[in-house]
Design a protein around this nucleic acid. Sequence first.
DNA 1: GTATGTGAAGTTATTCACAGCG
DNA 2: CGCTGTGAATAACTTCACATAC
Lengths: 209, 209
Amino acid sequence: MIENISDSSVRRLSAYLRQLEHFSADGVAVVSSQLLARRMNVGDAMIRRDLALFGQFGRPGVGYDVDQLTANLRKILGTNMRWNTVILGAGKLSRALMEYPGFHERGFEIVAAFDIDPRKVDTKVGDIPIHHMDELETILAQCQARIAILTVPAEVAQQVTDRLAGAGIDGILNFATTHLETPQGIHIDQVDITAHLEQLCFHATNAIP
Amino acid sequence: MIENISDSSVRRLSAYLRQLEHFSADGVAVVSSQLLARRMNVGDAMIRRDLALFGQFGRPGVGYDVDQLTANLRKILGTNMRWNTVILGAGKLSRALMEYPGFHERGFEIVAAFDIDPRKVDTKVGDIPIHHMDELETILAQCQARIAILTVPAEVAQQVTDRLAGAGIDGILNFATTHLETPQGIHIDQVDITAHLEQLCFHATNAIP
DNA sequence: GTATGTGAAGTTATTCACAGCG
DNA sequence: CGCTGTGAATAACTTCACATAC
């Protein structure tokens, strides 16, 4: 079932969900694919097609119930349950992520961080304890985290990945600027902020004036 | 010319560039599309195809000169020159980005930040001054920045975007969890870290066991 | 009348496979 | 002989357009 579903579709489901959060906050109860599409500039047919991959969620002549579709998208994405998450590396970026409230609000709980710097180990950021990397396997077994965020230096990213895989992690979000060899049975998603800047740069450079 | 080039291709060019940086650091002078492809698990033909969009950079029977291809990719992306960049919002994430050395190394110079919090305004993060939002247009005119990074709350992201557009910014990297209406002549690229987590979540939930 | 869900059509992206160069 | 660059073939994605449901 999952086989036929493209990453692009899944990414768009997240975007729809984000937009639905806004509609809900504004007190909008029902949206049509057309309205949703206009807000995000995509085609309305694409929204219907993406949703159709998973079932029938709308009512012809009416549209989609905002709360109901929100719940359905959460169920599809899996964020209708809570996901314990750990973060590897306790640098600046890591701290910013630990203090970002949006993760908690959307089902992700950062339960522990890991570093090797003795000045950081055994301190806390908010409620989140920072452990030594040596304790990785022990703590992971305790906290049942299935997702990990990688903010360690590129040079050690692969070995940390392999340890995470060994400890039974299911998915890794990689902020290191290096491509990771993906261990069996794991998903890795890379966030390269520099690449995003380069994309803007490309368009600014090659714009048709 | 730019019309025919997909965003996916441009994103991959960044990824190739990142990998070439690693090859160069390891002292590798020449790479074949096959070797590069193996390192990134993509097809070798795709790399050749992506590059072919912009010219002929390799030598049949040999491969690509690492330094030369690096220089060519930088030229294509536009990062062979320096890009003054400003950052809007001076929260945790913003500070992490300001202190990230990778931007400078790759051609992006964060020259100023903006916020409305009086406790932050007129202080500095490293060498980067934090100005009041009121000064946005004045400072932008001075520092000639063409790229902006948005880390402001979602509620004000659109109005800040419109001001940036009015002040002549060419590209915006948006970290706010809201879709932005794109002003004429500007490019906007969104980074939704939650969406990345949701993607992992989706795969972990719907994995074929 | 309005909006969904979906076959069919159209478009774009990726892979194949090989001629031709070094 | 190895590797690039690229037409041709294939696969994937998106849009069109309409039968169907409200």
